[in-house]
Design a protein around this nucleic acid. Structure first.
Lengths: 158, 158
DNA sequence: CAAAATAATTGTAATATACAATTATTACAT
DNA sequence: ATGTAATAATTGTATATTACAATTATTTTG
C-alpha cells in the first residue's frame, strides 16, 4: 500500500470539485426543465429503474417513504407520474412515468449524455477507454467499502 | 470521437452511484460528528481554503450570503468558528476556525482520508497511479466544460 | 380468525435555502 | 470634499425538503 496521504488529499479535492462545482451544476441548471431537483431525481430514477412501488423507490433514492409520497403527489399533479393501485396487493401503488413524464426523462437523459460527450471531447481519444475503466473500478471499490462498513441512511438531509 | 451512447450511459450509472449511494453516505454518516451537513461543509471549506470573508465563503460553497450568514451564526454559537471584523475594511468579517473547530476539521478530514485509503486497498496497487491520474483528467474536463458553458448557481437547492 | 406486519398517507416540526430589504462601510465621480 | 454608488453582512419572509410519528388499509401468519 503506497497510497500516501498527499495523493489521497489531491483525490479528495478532485472529488469535491466533481461533486460541488461540476456535476452539481448540471443538476441545478438546465437539466431539470422546470422541475425541482427532488422531482427531477424522482423522474430520472423511475425512468432508469422502471415501474416501482413507493417503498422501493424511496429505498432506491435513500429517502423516507413519507418524503417521497409528497414528491410523487406533486409529480402526479403536474402529470408526469402515474400512480395506480397494485391489484395483486392493494397495499402497494405502482409508480410509472406518464407519456409526458417519459418525454421529460428522455430530455434530461439527453442533456446528461450530451454533457458527458462534451467532457470526453476534451479528453484524448486514446485515453477514453482507460478513463472509463478506471472510473468504473474506483466507483465499484467505493461502493464495496460502503457496503462493508454498513452504511447508512436515512437521517436528516441537508 | 467514438464515445458511444452506451458507454456514456454506463458512466452515468457509475457517477450516479458515486454521488448518491457512496460519497453521499459518508456525508450523511459518521463523518459529521454532531454537525448538520451544512455545518460540516462549512467547517471543511474554511479548514481547506483558510480564513475568508463571508461572501467569499458563500461563493466557494455556492450558497447565498444570507444562508451562509445563518449557518455561520450557528457555528459561532457552538464555538467552532470565530467571526471577527476586518479592521482594514470594516464591511467584511473574517471567518476562521476556532481551536475546537480545527480539531473537528481534522477529525473529519481523517475520516475521509481513511475512507479513501480503504477504497484503494481494494484496488490493485499496480493500478493506483493510473486511477488517480484518470480521475484527475476526467474531473478537470468536467470542470472545463462547466466553465465553458457558463454554469451557474445559485438557484433553489434540493 | 385474531394479531402482527407492511405500504401508503397525513400531521408535525426542523433545517436549508433564496430573495428582498436594511444597515454599515467604503469607493468613486464630479 | 461630499454626495452617490457599490459592497458586505444581517435580518425578514416564504418555500422546499426532509424525517419521525401516527393513522389507515391491506395482507400474512400463527
Amino acid at each position: 500500500m503506497n497510497m500516501n496521504t498527499q495523493k489521497i488529499r489531491l483525490l479528495r479535492e478532485k472529488l469535491r470539485i466533481l461533486e460541488r462545482e461540476s456535476m452539481g451544476a448540471l443538476d441545478q441548471e438546465g437539466a431539470c426543465c422546470g422541475l425541482t431537483l427532488s422531482q427531477c431525481h424522482t423522474v430520472m430514477e423511475i425512468g432508469l429503474k422502471g415501474d416501482m412501488s413507493l417503498v422501493d423507490l424511496a429505498n432506491s433514492l435513500g429517502l423516507d417513504a413519507s418524503t417521497l409520497s409528497r414528491t410523487i403527489q406533486g409529480l402526479v399533479l403536474i402529470g408526469l407520474v402515474v400512480r395506480k393501485a397494485n391489484e395483486k396487493d392493494r397495499r402497494y401503488v405502482t409508480l410509472s412515468l406518464s407519456e409526458q413524464g417519459r418525454k421529460v426523462y428522455e430530455e434530461i437523459d439527453g442533456v446528461y449524455n450530451a454533457f458527458l460527450a462534451g467532457v470526453f471531447e476534451r479528453l484524448p481519444a486514446a485515453k477514453h477507454e482507460r478513463i472509463l475503466e478506471d472510473i468504473g473500478l474506483f466507483v465499484d471499490a467505493v461502493r464495496a467499502v460502503n457496503e462493508a462498513t454498513g452504511c447508512c441512511r436515512p437521517g436528516r438531509k441537508s
